[in-house]
């Protein structure tokens, strides 16, 4: 589904990603872990199409198509979704209005009609329940004055409504209390399907207790230095990142 080869990325003239190889098949959940500043958000943003991140080498193919050549909105329409680490606020545009515009833009691209108003309400209510969001939520300005937890829930909520094929979740667990973490994890797990793949970026192990990944990659200084199964995440939690650097200074193969 997603094939990344030798991806190099610069930000503000500085090389951040130094050759990333990653292959993700439908149905798989991959986790990317790594210390602060290692380049996790950079990878997520590059996949979503943020141009402040300059690709200096390598390729990324999504379902065989050249992802890096697509405009961000076309990536979304093709089925790529990124949950932001820091979602922005858009005052005056309601959540409901925004989400409907997004859904219809994607539907139009796929040659479908605009969603019926009643169907939209039903869809939104179902998904909101899943994440424990109340009705007033939809009428509020997009992320306007939301708490950190609400913003993160909103990202997963949008993902649930838009039903992308490939989801990148950038530290969706950070800033959540334990109840919110459970709701968010449930939301993510409900989306797992044999047709959908996910890339879960996280700094800590705790989300992975709920959303158990098929593959875990460790990103250090812009390179994947080790890949393994869910146990790798637990070891990291126990021992920190230091031992990996000593044990495996060379990039490990992308698949276990």
């Amino acid at each position: 589904m997603l094939e990344i080869k030798g991806l190099h990325v610069k930000v503000a003239g500085k090389e951040i990603l130094k050759g990333i190889d990653l292959s993700i098949q439908p149905g798989e959940v991959h986790a990317i872990m790594g210390p602060n500043g290692s380049g996790k958000t950079t990878l997520a943003q590059v996949l979503a199409g943020r141009v402040t991140y300059e690709v200096t080498g390598g390729t990324a193919r999504f379902e065989g198509k050249d992802l890096l050549a697509m405009k961000p909105e076309d990536r979304a329409r093709e089925g790529v979704f990124m949950a932001f680490q820091y979602p922005v606020e858009i005052p005056g545009v309601s959540n409901a209005y925004f989400l409907k515009a997004a859904l219809n833009a994607i539907r139009k691209y796929r040659g479908q009609d605009e969603i019926d108003a009643m169907d939209f309400v039903t869809l939104v209510q179902d998904k909101a329940k899943l994440l424990g969001l109340d009705e007033t939520f939809m009428k509020r300005g997009l992320n306007e004055g939301f708490s950190g937890g609400e913003k993160k829930k909103n990202e997963v909520f949008q993902m649930a409504v838009l039903e992308p094929k490939f989801c990148v979740l950038d530290e969706t667990d950070s800033g959540l209390d334990i109840d919110a973490l459970r709701l968010v994890a449930n939301g993510i797990n409900a989306m797992r399907s044999p047709k959908r793949a996910m890339l879960v970026v996280t700094h800590y192990q705790r989300l992975l207790d709920y959303v158990v990944p098929d593959v875990v990659h460790v990103l250090v200084d812009g390179k994947i230095v080790k890949s393994g199964d869910a146990d790798l995440a637990r070891n990291l939690e126990k021992h920190g990142y230091g031992w990996i650097l000593e044990e495996a200074p060379r990039p490990a193969p992308a698949r276990p």
Partner: peptide, 11 residues
């Protein structure tokens, strides 16, 4: 803000 909207399919 514009980028956020784009990642949701909106030009």
């Amino acid at each position: 803000q514009l980028f956020y909207c784009q990642t949701r399919g909106i030009t």
